[in-house]
């Protein structure tokens, strides 16, 4: 049960950076209607860097853990570097490779973050 190891379940049960950000200057939302996964991102950007970030929404363990881990990773990152992140990086964070049916779950938070910061 590689996919549901302790670390992922821990991020699912105790998500980091979950909630709202009062100083946010950009937000975005992504959703997968077929399974109901939904991620909202609130970001405070300064000097082309992510100063702070929060996420909210609901989804499966893979989706929520991915959001939690990603928000930790991107804090302090340059926007130009964030735009370079791919499925490969998400899989590295999750510590596993994903079957095709679960890729969308794991990528939804990254898509929301990239959409938010794109063009900033």
């Amino acid at each position: 049960m590689d996919l549901y190891r302790e670390e992922i379940l821990d991020h699912y049960k105790h998500p980091r950076n979950f909630g709202h950000l009062s100083g946010a200057n950009i937000t975005s939302e992504e959703m997968n209607p077929s399974c109901g996964d939904r991620v909202m991102i609130e970001i405070a950007v300064s000097d082309q860097e992510i100063a702070d970030i929060r996420f909210s929404g609901q989804g499966c363990a893979i989706n929520q853990a991915s959001a939690s881990m990603l928000t930790e990773k991107v804090k302090g990152m340059k926007i130009s570097d964030i735009m370079k992140l791919t499925l490969y990086d998400v899989e590295k964070l999750l510590g596993t490779t994903l079957t095709p049916s679960r890729v969308k779950c794991a990528l939804l938070p990254l898509e929301a973050i990239q959409k938010a910061v794109y063009g900033q």
């Binding site: 049960m1 549901y4 399974c35 996964d37 499966c60 363990a61 989706n63 679960r102």
Partner: peptide, 13 residues
């Protein structure tokens, strides 16, 4: 507390 996708995936194991 468990999403249906997680249910199906874990049962698949």
């Amino acid at each position: 507390k468990v999403h249906p996708h997680d249910i199906a995936q874990i049962l698949n194991e």
